[in-house]
Nucleic acid binder design. Structure first.
Lengths: 143, 143
DNA sequence: TTTTAATCAGACAATTTCATCTGATTAAGT
DNA sequence: ACTTAATCAGATGAAATTGTCTGATTAAAA
């Protein structure tokens, strides 16, 4: 299978976008995220723990606890979430899997793929999660 | 980990490009490909079998047997190799993993990622492996 | 015609990713 | 204080991907 993000990262992105779309100001439990986004409860729980360690979300423990964004949505870039979960290795490793691949010693796809990869990086680096509040609300209401 | 192609597909692309760069006109054994490209022997052997079933490469059995391209290099697109190994699912599935994601009911990243994905598809669809003979020979000589 | 070296076929093993389980800790509400 | 419901931490289990092994078949070469 071909994949751009791991399942963990897909779920993490969904969850952070969900938190960013939260109108109420209350914390949101892993259980609610699990139910609303159809993500296995224990799995998203673990992912949210990771994101908490990474400083992207923060948590309130105990009864009535849950998660919320650790920063203003305009300060959280998509690339931050990807970096926290999958890492940024794909943005400087060879698309064909050659051990060394650089402008000096490029693989056959180096320049063709390099352009697309740069555009992808730029998109993830430019987009902050406040850009997606409306579209997330719309998506959630159609799940 | 974030990945664009599976390891199988990376190796398959390497191997087909290797066959396309072959000057001699002779068949090439899985063993040679394994040694030259540093790919586990039995693994690349299996991958070449898949590619043979898919009609991208052809094989000669018995002693002095090996593999060769089943078509002219100008008739083999990168997308054909990807389709044969990883499939094309990534080009019509949601980047965030939502079960349904379409222009009607898009995920938050639908349009941003959609553009990049189209460009990627276009590149893989446009590029045939005859385009990479020189660059492959250069790369091989530096391994 | 026997040996050798290759592909082919299918089972098996190891590793990584995905997902679950168990129990501890924390804090709100009764 | 006690109960309840949440996060936290670490182990465990399941599934997919990656990699290996064994033996059969094929065909060139001695």
């Amino acid at each position: 299978m071909t994949v751009i993000f791991s399942k963990k990262c897909e779920y993490g992105l969904q969850a952070v976008l969900y938190l960013a779309a939260n109108q109420s100001g209350d914390v949101i439990s892993a259980d609610e995220i699990s139910r609303k986004l159809n993500i296995p409860r224990e799995f998203i729980s673990k992912i949210l723990q990771n994101l908490t360690e990474s400083g992207i979300v923060d948590s309130k423990k105990g009864k009535a606890g849950g998660f919320f964004l650790a920063k203003h949505p305009s300060k959280i870039r998509l690339i931050d979430i990807v970096a926290a979960i999958d890492g940024l290795e794909m943005f400087n490793s060879c698309v064909l899997g050659f051990p060394s691949c650089s402008p000096d010693n490029p693989c056959p796809l180096h320049s063709k793929w390099g352009e697309l990869r740069s555009l992808t990086y730029k998109m993830l680096n430019d987009e902050t999660i406040d850009h997606f509040k409306e579209s997330t609300l719309r998506k959630i209401s159609n799940l």
